[in-house]
Amino acid sequence: MAKQIQVSGLDAYYGSNKAIEDISMTIEPRSVTAFIGPSGCGKSTFLRTLNRMHEVIPGARVEGKVMLDADDLYAPGVDPVSVRRTIGMVFQRPNPFPTMSIYENVAAGLRLNGRISKARADEIVERSLKGANLWNEVKDRLNKPGAGLSGGQQQRLCIARAIAVQPQVLLMDEPCSALDPISTLAIEDLIAELKDEFTIVIVTHNMQQAARVSDRTAFFNLAAQGQPGKLVEMDETTNMFTNPSEKATEDYITGRFG
């Protein structure tokens, strides 16, 4: 069920300010693709263009093409809501719905999109929480508020919520940057399991993390502050970290700048 994403000549704007320029890449199904690069280089912006979350910000727009297998996500008439149902997203800060219990949080995507039977919801909630490695920790308190969990648990709850709607692709925007090392490890293990089923794209500032979890890595950079971010290169992660073809990549990875 996982799908391939093919991006060609994509520009994204905030108002008249061009944030990323001319990005083309292929994201393979059932693999983890990591985006690395200095702050402000447009990795998160690019990630958000992949499920049309970019345009949620007033004044933001996108030019170019994003193909999900054979579907053009930016073709006229495409419903962004259905795009987001197909391509889920996990955010930097865990953001469970504060008015909902753990159970309701996981079921939110299903319930908010229409009626489903209690039995079916139970089944999906259990499967999603197991999928997010959270089931054993919360199975006795599903009706307790989701905001009462620890940060790492909340983030796994958000992952469970995202996979409950059974997307084809899962986008993760620095999912571990607000978490401690142990929770980070739990999420990384989870990513390794999830890639059997989903296409995963992860933005990270942590190069070790990119090296640990991803199959392919894309390095973004910007020429100068105020310039749009660009894709410098993209390759197998092992190649990127041992033998990058661009000087800038090597400098960034070895810590010479950024």
């Binding site: 949620v56 809501v81 987001r84 955010f91 995507g109 908010l112 919520r161």
Partner: peptide
């Protein structure tokens, strides 16, 4: 706005996000 985005990212339309979240 995190909560609104979380809801949009689940494929929930805007009006439902307002009503339910």
């Amino acid at each position: 706005s995190d909560l609104r985005e979380a809801s949009y990212a689940l494929g929930v339309p805007r009006w439902r996000t307002i009503v339910k979240v």
